[in-house]
Amino acid sequence: MKVLVAVKRVIDYNVKVRVKADNSDVDLTNVKMAMNPFCEIAVEEAVRLKEKGIASEIVVVSIGPKVAQEQIRTALALGADRGILIETEEKLEPLTVAKLLKGVVEKEQPQIVLMGKQTIDSDNNQTGQMLGALTGMPQGTFASEVAVDGDKVNVTREIDGGLRTVALNLPAIVTTDLRLNEPRYASLPNIMKAKRKPLDTTTPADLGVEVKSTLSLVKVTPPAERSAGIKVDSVATLVDKLKNDAKVL
């Protein structure tokens, strides 16, 4: 079975994000970039499916500038078989991404599309769902467990107050949550081998998708700095403050 994994290049989760001086956007100059952590979980799950003998080929796709190849290579080093980069310098919104992925899905005909539930840059949590709507494939979002069973996949979803397991007919879309797995480290030999795995580049035009933005970013502001705390001299004052000022008791 073929598995398609979508990955995105985002600011490394360790980096403290800065906002541009004119508040127009996040400052990306000289910032370390990495694969979105949820996408890493999706890659790991695909590799595990392959190790179990369920998946036969893992195709990894990314959309973005040429440098997004780095993230595809990382996925190849983790165990994916081949990569596709849809190269564009344009700003992308979830609907465009979903349309582009639909193009890849039609071409590749995967049985399972694995993707992160959201990316840590814009936190939209929309692309998987939109791809489901566009392709008509069933979707299992926020997966914390994925079990392929014949021509079905059982996806345990993390929902408010508990877990919910859905059985989806293949082909299906699964978006990964944090607790699905713990991604491995790419071994050094696999990093070297990744160089020789095929990586094709295509463009939105090749897929017949026009990249246009229906959203405009108005303003980006950093969260307000936390004001300094105060010291109280007795437990009584503390309780009083918690009750009357903070109103948490």
Binding site: Q69, E70, R73, A186, L188, I191
Partner: peptide
Amino acid sequence: EEQQMIKDTVRSY
């Protein structure tokens, strides 16, 4: 590219 990936991987380990 490989050296950078090796560096990042070893550092995170």
